[in-house]
Each structure stands twice: as C-alpha cells, then as structure tokens.
Design a protein around this nucleic acid. Structure first.
Lengths: 204, 204
DNA sequence: TATTAAATTGAACGCTGTTCAATTAATGGC
DNA sequence: GCCATTAATTGAACAGCGTTCAATTTAATA
C-alpha cells in the first residue's frame, strides 16, 4: 500500500515527535525504537525514514523540542535585579522541569550520538538561547561592557549545575549523605556567586 | 566443545575486561558487544555470561576498573596545604586522565543502565574513594570538626567539574566562544573556592 | 484521461543481547 | 587406572534492533 492522505508531512512529523515523547516518558529512551513509534502512530517503520534521516536524527529532534520546552519554562522567570533571589527561582524552575519531565530530560543529556555523528548546528542555537536566560539573571553582577565575562561565567555556572543534576540523576554521586540535589545545587550557586563578587572586589 | 583449560576463571575475567577496554578505546562503547569481546579473547559469546550476569554488569566492571585507574592517577597528587595550587594540580591531573582515556571516560559517564537496574554498591564505594582525594585537598579550608561541611563542599565541587567536562565532551555546551574546557574548569574552581572563603569570613 | 511523481509498505539484511541443550574435559573417589 | 560426577564451553536459536529498498498505490500534474 502507499500514499495515504491521512496526514500531511508536517502532521506526521508532529505525530511522530509526540509519540516519541510519550514513549520516552513512559518507558525510557531505550524503548524509543522505530517500530514502537510506528506502531503508536499507525504507520510502518519505513515511513519514519521519510521524516528523519536516522535514529540519531529523530532523537535530536525530540531533544530539540525538550530544549524548547525548557526554554519556555525558564523564560517565565522575570529577573528583578536581585541576583541571588532571581537565580534561586531560576534554579527551582529548572528542578521542577526535571521532575516533570524526567524521561525527556534524561534522554536530553544521556543519549549519545553514534560515532562520527556531530551535534547539529540548530541544536547549539537552542543551547545558546538557554544560556541567554542565565546571562540575563546574572548580568547585574557585571559591568555593561563586560559581556564576555558575563557569558563565560554563565556558561560555567550552568555547566556546573548540570554536573550536579546529571550525577544525581544517574546515581553516580553516591548520594549517601543527607543532602539533596536541590541543596547541592544551591550550595554551588551560593558559593559561585559569592566567589564572583569576592574576586571582583579584590580586583587582583 | 567444552571445558578448555586454557585459562582460569580469573584469567578469563582479566582477558575479557582488557579486551573490552581496548574495544571501547578503539571504537567507542557502542562497539562493546558480547560477540566483539568474545572474538578478541577467542571464546564464544556464551562464555562471557559465565563471567558477567549481563551487558550492564560487564560495563559496570569495566567502569569500575576505570574508576580505579582514575583513583590511582589522582592519588599521585600530594597535597601541600596550598589549596589553590593543590587543586589546580588535581584538576590538571584529571584532565590528563580524560585526554589519555577518552573512550573509557566517556563510557564511565555516558553509558546508562537499562531500566530498573541499579548502580551496584561497590561502585558507590569507588566513587567515595575519589571524593576522599578531593576532600584531602580541600580540607585546609575547613575546621577539623567540620567534616560534614568538607565532604558536602567537596561533592558539590566535584559534581560541578563533572558538568563542565561532560558537556564539553559531548559538545552540548555550544563551545563557540574561545574558552577551553580547562579554562572553564579553572573558573569554576577559582570562584567556588573564593566563595567558600568569602562566605566563611562573613560568617552569616 | 494518461503520465509522472511522491508516499508507504513490508520483507529482507545484518546486527544485537541472551538463553540453553548438548558436548566435552577436568575432577574426585575407589 | 577407571568411572561417575561436575563444571565449562559452545553454537544454534529467539526475539528484537536500525536501516534499506523494490514494489505498490495513490495524488498531482499535464
């Protein structure tokens, strides 16, 4: 059989992405197979290869959507200028997003492209968008002409936070002690921001 | 055929782990299949299931070995009491280890257990050993009776560093700007330690 | 209406993890 | 030295995977 007109190409794309997201949230990203997605949307596996070049590509598109959603979440935080309070809220918003989308968040950072495949350019753009939010919260710490420093510090703090959430998520931090992910993240933020301020006033 | 006496069980275990390590370094952890390992050591795939309960278990054992090697590397750093200098050296030693064992390090943090499988207890013990090294370097910052604080701060800083190395490794940080992984890690360490000191002297 | 072009399928290929009956060799007891 | 037992090893088999592609069918075009 061939050439059904049940859905346009765009509709099909959306169907596939939505099905993929459901599968990932329900059963983890190891269950995200072409046959599973095809079953859910009522098409054959081969059809998916009209939409995506391969599995890596499909995962990247799902991850891209997750980055968009995360951006929307974080963008709801309106900076007041109080860096500590603003960042605390940003952090909690992030942690809520993780709690609400554990499977998708896990795939976002734990699916690894097969050898030789590079992260697409549009993906980097989405990451930059996220970093922009972090920068907007951190910006009161820096002079207006210090944009380079601002973005560098933002990236480092963002990456540092990722380390805590990532290791907690995968259980690779031996979280035997009583401290929660949130507490650890708050410690990192507090010390890091205090460190920025301290090193600025010393002006070495 | 059966019951060759070419190797003892322990020898076989070592053969398998070594072969697995070679495969991972050569072709990435996606190439770490039972058949590939079996081919290298000259046994059949089934034999591997006498040594390991399944693929997850085998990967965990390879990762355990990597943690041991990393521990040995980092343990070569002898703390002088100068926290900044000691930690800088510790960091560089870590980065050298990553550079020398990119495939194994990548698998250590990017292989994810299949749904339902937990990280084994002995794995957590090895991680604790690593954290002990970090603590020994950071300890001059804290009073002798503040062991809890020391280990908490050590874990946070260690996790933060992991975020930077992990995101750099997978290209998920949009490293467009000029700063290298090393520079970012140094920023994190510098600010974090400065933050600890600053917040201690303020004693809020 | 005839022709072209696009979409869809399902079978096929080679790979994967894993299991297990069958086979063989080392071991322990006599 | 022989026999029964036990343990190790195999390879075939199963179900699943990503991916390709000839064949088919329909929509769009002329």
């Amino acid at each position: 059989m061939a050439r059904r007109s049940d859905h346009s190409r765009d509709e099909l794309y959306r169907l596939a992405i939505d099905a993929a997201r459901d599968i990932v949230e329900a059963d983890g990203f190891r269950a995200l197979t072409a046959r599973n997605v095809a079953d859910v949307i009522g098409y054959s596996p081969g059809t998916l290869y009209n939409l995506f070049v391969n599995q890596d590509d499909m995962v990247m598109h799902v991850n891209g959507r997750t980055l968009d959603d995360l951006h929307d979440s974080l963008a709801s935080v309106m900076p007041t200028g109080d860096v500590d309070a603003d960042f605390a809220l940003l952090l909690d918003t992030y942690l809520v997003f993780i709690k609400d989308n554990p499977g998708l968040w896990h795939m976002l950072f734990n699916y690894t492209l097969s050898e030789g495949h590079e992260i697409p350019e549009w993906y980097g753009r989405k990451v930059k968008g996220l970093l922009g939010i972090v920068e907007s919260v951190l910006s009161p710490l820096f002079a207006n002409n210090d944009g380079d420093k601002l973005s560098a510090e933002s990236r480092v703090l963002w990456a540092g936070l990722h380390g805590i959430t990532a290791l907690s998520d995968t259980g690779k931090l031996s979280l035997v002690s009583g401290q929660s992910t949130r507490e650890m993240a708050q410690m990192l933020v507090a010390n890091y921001i205090a460190g920025i301020r301290a090193r600025q006033s010393v002006r070495k």
